[in-house]
Design a protein around this nucleic acid. Sequence first.
DNA 1: GTGAAAGCGCTAACAT
DNA 2: ATGTTAGCGCTTTCAC
Lengths: 317, 317
Amino acid sequence: MAQITLKKLAELSGLSIRTVSRVLKNQAYVVPEKRELVLKLAEQYHYLPNMAARNLRLQKKSFVGILSSNFQTEVFLQKVNDLERRLFSAGCYPILGRPDNFSTDFRKMMRDWSGVMDYVVVFELPSPVSGEDLLEFPLDFIFVDRETPADHHSLLIDRGSGVCEAIKHLIRNGRRRILHCGGHESRKEGIQRAFDEIGTAEGARRMFLESPSEFRDGYSQGPAILQRNPDAVFFDTDRMAAGFLKFAMERNIAIPGKIAVVGFDDDLICRMSAPSLSSVAHPIAEINTEIVSILTSPRKEKICKTFPTRFILRESC
Amino acid sequence: MAQITLKKLAELSGLSIRTVSRVLKNQAYVVPEKRELVLKLAEQYHYLPNMAARNLRLQKKSFVGILSSNFQTEVFLQKVNDLERRLFSAGCYPILGRPDNFSTDFRKMMRDWSGVMDYVVVFELPSPVSGEDLLEFPLDFIFVDRETPADHHSLLIDRGSGVCEAIKHLIRNGRRRILHCGGHESRKEGIQRAFDEIGTAEGARRMFLESPSEFRDGYSQGPAILQRNPDAVFFDTDRMAAGFLKFAMERNIAIPGKIAVVGFDDDLICRMSAPSLSSVAHPIAEINTEIVSILTSPRKEKICKTFPTRFILRESC
DNA sequence: GTGAAAGCGCTAACAT
DNA sequence: ATGTTAGCGCTTTCAC
């Protein structure tokens, strides 16, 4: 499929490149008959301007890199999907990369992407990086939900806010023995806030069970959870909560009757589990809006904003 | 972040562009001291070659478009994730697009992508297209699991094969009243095959309940399903099967004890539902291998291959 | 009204 | 061993 170029169009029409360009960009000062001719030829040969060349000339980049070491979870898909929609309107598209490590994969990607984009959005990275590390790349980085190296944009997620809402909801609905199953600091902090605000006053008790937070963990921690006799459990992830739901179903433990359950992430699984899972949702739309705004109106100062998560009530509590 | 260029490096070093280029590409015939100097400068200024320019010059493209109107399901993420890994080794990256329609979105994407890629992989498209429609774009299309316009690569999925395996498994395990809930022709065909091969001989009976195939449908069809008194149900999608699992749980219907359940897609949900869901998996690795092979060794003739799906046994049957 | 020409950053054939 | 130069496909200034 040989690309047809301006030059070929010029030869074909016997006109100069400049004139052909004028016609195709709908600029003034071309006599109608020449205009017609060029248009006809362009149509006939399916002329499409080479964007790579145009962008090189205009020093304009129309892609944005998306880095994540985790393509597994469904929330990631939600984020990218939402971002794609927004970028599209701005004539921009996401290029995906899933580096397995910093020193080789990450570097290779940055090299390969140089010149086609100005910005790289980093959702997850296999290893920590410093501002120093990034200095060598002629790119602006936008870190999402991640400790941010000096001098780069960072859009942080306040995971605590949604967790706090969730816990307060549990307490207000009469739950008094609340177990946190997982271990992320961000979640602990939200729970702490809820107890500070109303939990302690209401006489609620707080328990903690340290655990990894995959599906299998929620399932395997079942006995340990029961042993602590909670009337509500907050899990660090939806996957983990789903694992516990499975355990509960097998043991005929009523959810939310006997135990209320809340997860984190608002994964698709929440709407597909039985009962449907209350969870804490990421501020996807808000963050992506901000990303697009950074891309479209470049600024000198680095953005650093924090966005709250929010509690989503479903059947499990 | 101003890009540092070969030209600047040449000025800085007082050498010609050619020599600088020689050094950086590790070619022969440069005296050590000049080599050293250039290397030092490149290091110091964090020189990165502009790939957009290099690719323009070399007429080489290092991206591949991925079109899908459906970014919702987790299988899509699996596919893209797997493809990304394979492309990466080939120095190539996926650019995502989610066109909402052919006439505007699709066209805009093809225009915007012209010159940066040679191939576009089409997973799903909002409307049917013909070979004619695609003629206007200087791109090769690889259609996956989709009716393919004339003269383009097509990698088809034989959905029937996995379904057939699934149904035969059910029959061999003593199920005799098998209900198909959904309506896709591809599934029907697989079920037919299974009955032709062993079902009829074994005296199994086949029933059909027409339905859309989302989560809510699996749930809402619960009563209609029970009414037909099946001992096994095959659902067109995992989401739908999960919906029925929820219904069954609420009604205390033993799965797989009373009713065996099989879904389709091998979504993440399969491993996270209770009980875990038997399903039919897409030939992701096989298809992506083929895609990469098409990209890396261009050919005149169009590829057209069909890949079988396969049955994945879990707890639900 | 139209065209020649420079140049975006890079490569490589062709001098020297 | 090193530099000059043309050109990938495009945009745009500046002449005519």
